[in-house]
Design a protein around this nucleic acid. Structure first.
Lengths: 218, 218
DNA sequence: CGTCGTAGGCGTACAACATACGCCTACGGA
DNA sequence: TCCGTAGGCGTATGTTGTACGCCTACGACG
């Protein structure tokens, strides 16, 4: 084997992420990453075949920070809260990379790892078959939606500020709500919203138990 | 006023949307839109200052199709279901434009119109103050998350297919769940997930009533 | 210790893009 | 009829991703 690689995939991803963190997502170009690595532009193509693949590596790196071990000795809803919060934290650590994560999340093995962990908790909680699939989908949907909303304007951010200044004639409720919501931090907003989703999951679990246990294992 | 405009903003947006629908989002270039309008490339800049603004117009056009009149004579949760479903339908009508909608949604007046309608339903249902804000945020988060998930791989789509073929040793639950989820259509998946969210909202409403009605109006 | 094939590294080149600038021109009010 | 405003466009520039083809460092084998 001649000429061993100078950089690992992680090195490449770290360089790209550094560019993003430092100069924003728009600054992520093949040239910029190559310069950061001390490479010529085209040398970067020895490591990735594509800009697309480079972005995938970045997402994978960001998500690799997520610990997918469910915290033990907690009820299932609190376990889920922790698991979801960890992803949120990982995303928050690199806010400029969030649009990338939303586009490339389906290519990252770390997402699968995380989903597997969530399914473990759901299964232990009593979710089975397609109910389990829907529950996972619900959690993922809420998580993605929330991350995206955090990203471009949390309740207490500039967007809400603008809404609060909206003409109360055209949007009476919206203006009022925005004014009230200015106090709510992004974290609170997320947690309280997630609590509502958990209430729903628990209720759906109870309903399923009433209607008929189907093939409840154990 | 000399030389009246040849095209309205809606014309511009329609042309851009036509390009997207016909040739995909990647084909959305200033040139392509200009050609479609029978204009030279630079003439387009008489109507929009920016590619960014052009994208905003497209999103606004897509969302303008959403009827924000809450259906009367229905319980609040079913009203919400209809309102949310309408946005989903509007997005589904132009699947290729969805990434744009996710990026530019905060600039569209139609989003405000929709939020106002949702807040009306929530208020009538008994949600007040910051509870109302959280509820709205919950609904929006779920909606955005679901649209995005629909877009890049519904449960019954290719992504799930790939997951079902995943190594059962590495991801036992995920592979099993994906296999079970193949039957679930995107619509069902959305509706059943949304039903869970509504269960949660109702439960949170009941909890609020128990704990103390605070300043319940009326 | 030489030699050779593989794979790393890079300079050049090109096509597509958004967009700045400056010119011509169609139009409507006077 | 004339004039100013605003529409329309040709040209040009800088930035992007990336194909191509060359040189070169390296490690295994002789």
């Amino acid at each position: 084997m001649p000429r061993p690689r100078s950089y690992s995939e992680t090195d490449i991803a770290a360089a790209a992420l550094a560019v993003i963190d430092h100069d924003g997502l728009a600054a992520l170009t093949m040239r910029a990453v190559a310069v950061r690595l001390g490479l010529g532009t085209m040398s970067l193509y020895r490591y990735v075949s594509d800009r697309e693949q480079l972005e995938g590596l970045v997402v994978d790196l960001v998500l690799s920070a997520v610990d997918t071990t469910p915290p033990p000795d907690l009820p299932w809803d609190e376990q889920l809260t922790v698991l979801v919060e960890r992803v949120r934290a990982a995303a928050a650590a690199h806010p400029q990379a969030i649009p990338l994560a939303l586009t490339h999340r389906h290519t990252s093995a770390n997402v699968l790892r995380w989903a597997e962990a969530v399914l473990g908790v759901l299964t232990a909680a009593g979710f089975t078959e397609d109910r389990r699939a829907i529950a996972l989908r619900c959690l993922l949907g809420h998580l993605i939606g929330s991350i995206q909303m955090d990203h471009l304007g949390p309740l207490s951010g500039a967007g809400t500020e603008a809404m609060a200044r909206l003409s109360p004639e055209a949007y009476p409720l919206l203006a009022e709500t925005a004014r009230e919501a200015r106090e709510v931090t992004a974290g609170d907003e997320f947690r309280r919203g997630f609590r509502i989703l958990l209430l729903g999951l628990r209720a759906s679990l109870d309903q399923a138990a009433e209607t008929g246990p189907e093939v409840t294992n154990q």
